[in-house]
Simulated assay, not measured.
Amino acid sequence: MPPFVETEEKESTLRSRGTGVEDQSPPDSRHPLYLGDWKRSIPYVDEDFARDDMDEPHLKRKHTILREHPEVEKLYGTDIRTLYVTIGINVVQLSIAYTFGKLWQAPIYIFALVAYFIGGTLTGMIGVVIHEACHCLVFKQKWINRYFGLFANIALPVPIAQSFRRYHIEHHTWQGVEGMDPDLPLDWEKALIRGNALSKFLWIMIYPVMYVVRGAVMQHDRNLTPSKWEIINVVFTIASDYLIYHFCGLRGLLYLLTSLWFGYSLHPGAAHFVQEHYTFDDGQETYSYYGILNIPFMNIGYHNEHHDFQKIPWSKLPALRSMAKDYYDKLSYHTSWLMVHYKFISQPNIGPQSRVIRTYDDHKKGRTLLAKMRQFDLFQKSKVSATTQ
């Protein structure tokens, strides 16, 4: 199977979806499998993101799947195993930090190799853990997930957990909405990077910084102030960093920083940042990854499934795909994170501008049509019920 798969059914499916006047279907052409008619943005050809005139497709797909597969709701819940994974990662990372800081002055190449292959991998997994916590998929009580996010942040010497929660929930709420989705690249990223391979390589190398910068820019543009939990996160991280410095030394703290940098930049596990919403195909704005690295990275590659059903924990996303394979197997997807980075960097027709945006008004219009569509479905069900009685 190639590293990026465009399913054979996709083109014919897109051609067959009309407005539904003849078959009395609801007035939204995306019901039930419509993606989009927009063309992806090409560097040096287009100046801005691609633009859609509807809301994102996940909520429509969710309701359609639930109508056909109501058993999906049984997958909702939490997974306490995430706690055990987090404890293990913190123990390993702090033990390595102590070893490098107090017990062994390892050569720089060994320090770097360990920080990349072990530290970078575990740092990426901590990112997945924090992601689960922000959706309250570890514990049922919201407040426990807040504290758990702080616990997961110990091995990351930068206060990430609570800011990520804030901006990630906004990303789900306003996916692709210009000025509101904090996951979208900034104007200078589009203008400066474009399709140049070296520029894209350097851009990926500073991706950990860009996550922070984008949040700060959005805070400034929307006159937002740090939340109580973000302030708590900063204080907590300063305290934990001091303790790590005290017990593990400067070299131990530098190991954790290096692990963070490697794990969120040019690391196979970090390719999901590109895989998720950078458009490799016309009309499709979200992509999943189905490959072997989903095992250590706790199924973070199942991104279409996660956007459709945010109440399903990482361990049950493969079951969701299996239940609703008629939907997910019709979407293009990736099978190699190494190839995601390689294609993104090497191919001049893709870059930071390879995203899709929509206005708030178009997003709202799409949600209105969704409400009409659901009313239509209820009407059709009532007609069928009355006929069978």
Rank of each mutant, 00 (worst) to 15 (best):
R166W: 08
N90G: 12
Y333M: 10
G195Q: 11
F201E: 05
W314L: 13
I295S: 08
Q105T: 15
P57L: 12
Q353L: 14
P32Q: 05
F164D: 01
S346F: 13
K10T: 08
D183T: 13
Y264K: 05
S382P: 03
T123H: 09
P296W: 07
H31R: 07
V209A: 14
I295D: 05
D79N: 14
V212T: 11
G249C: 10
W203I: 12
P268D: 12
I87D: 09
A112W: 03
S41R: 01
L66F: 04
D281L: 15
L257A: 13
P182R: 04
D281Y: 14
E22C: 06
Y289H: 10
D23I: 15
R81F: 13
V158D: 02
L369C: 05
R194D: 10
Y44M: 10
I108F: 11
P226G: 04
H363T: 09
T64D: 07
Y147P: 00
P70E: 05
Y287W: 05
E132S: 09
D241W: 00
V340C: 07
Y278H: 14
L202T: 11
R355A: 07
T388H: 11
P26A: 14
I295H: 01
N294Q: 13
S259E: 03
L198W: 14
H363C: 12
F139C: 12
R251C: 08
A115E: 08
H135A: 12
K330Q: 08
T78F: 03
S227I: 01
I300V: 15
C136S: 15
E73S: 12
P226I: 03
